[in-house]
Design a protein around this nucleic acid. Structure first.
Lengths: 179, 179
DNA sequence: CATAATGGCCGAATTAAATTCCGCAGCAAC
DNA sequence: GTTGCTGCGGAATTTAATTCGGCCATTATG
């Protein structure tokens, strides 16, 4: 077993780091994954087979998790977006909550630090469907309360951006932390 | 100008509704957009050219907004996910906030109903970078306070699901609303 | 230092898929 | 009944994906 395969099976990432050309490739493919290897190679300064080889490696290593069609929520009758914060009695009951993943309306499930335990991102047809989904949540053992933030307008929504992280200098009035 | 083009220019959706075959196609392409038209056609019961024609129409109508590579955030050094709620002095100052879209760390910007005005989804390398980003937010005119929910674990994260909306019956103790 | 081994690239050749074209069938309007 | 329109399938053509072999640079090894 080579190092890369080993890393993948440990749910880690391969030791081979992503170089600037890889980042360029990811940037292009996030914008348009239907591009040909010929055009992709030209964008990043490689021959078509070389670009192909890079993309194969990025998929194999897990850096590219999938290639997916991005659907307009309005086209599939799910125009209502909401974020639902859920309080539970401690952490013991969160596994039951994961069952909500069976509903296609639920797009994200996270546990968060703060005044809630679980955070959902849900997309429904209307407020009636959202109400029904919340009703299901209250039927789940351990759920003590929920708080929903209904989205009025969405100004930006995009996939993970592979560009190099911007510099965000800490506010000037703060001393440099040790770490 | 045909009806479809007209709808797109009005930022509406074409009148031609998405039939069950279209939904099947969307479902397949969300899972794997690299599938060939031959295989796609077989999955949905169409010939390759017919499947091709359907996909072209779905793209033209805007139902398929893009085809994108899904990147593992860890691979591009953005393992820290957080949701940031921002309070502003009324709505007048929200346009200034949209400038944060220039940072690739910001994935989503919404205005929400509830006790905040703006909700951001951000992905940073570490808490230091998040701190820097929050510092930038406080420098933005109109921002009075922020509340951040740092994600501990993500259990589900998937694109818009084109499947038919599940039935969420309202809780039994509620009478049927008029609408 | 010399030399072998590796990894990544390119160009050409081959294979597979996308795309076009055309005729046909179902359906609606008239 | 006829006309026009829309979506489908099969065949042909064009384009892209994929494979292969050889080359160069870097790195390990004696």
């Amino acid at each position: 077993m080579d190092a890369e395969t080993d890393d993948i099976q440990r749910n880690k990432h391969p030791t081979r780091d992503i170089d600037p050309i890889d980042r360029k490739i990811l940037g292009v493919l996030v914008e348009d994954a239907t591009i040909s290897y010929a055009d992709l190679g030209e964008r990043v300064g490689l021959s078509p087979p070389a670009a192909h080889e890079r993309v194969k490696r990025l998929k194999r290593s897990g850096a590219i998790r999938a290639t997916s069609a991005i659907i307009d929520p309005r086209a599939v009758k799910k125009p209502l977006l909401a974020f639902v914060h859920i309080d539970t009695r401690g952490w013991g009951k969160t596994p039951e909550l994961m069952a909500v993943s069976k509903y296609p309306e639920v797009e994200e499930i996270h546990t968060v630090a703060g005044d809630t335990c679980v955070l959902l991102k849900v997309r429904t047809e209307d407020t009636r469907a959202l109400e029904g989904l919340l009703g299901r949540l209250y039927d789940t053992p351990g759920v003590t309360s929920t708080r929903s933030y209904v989205v009025l307008s969405t100004y930006l929504e995009r996939p993970v951006q592979p560009e190099i992280t911007s510099e965000f200098p800490a506010p000037k009035h703060m001393a440099n932390p040790m770490y």
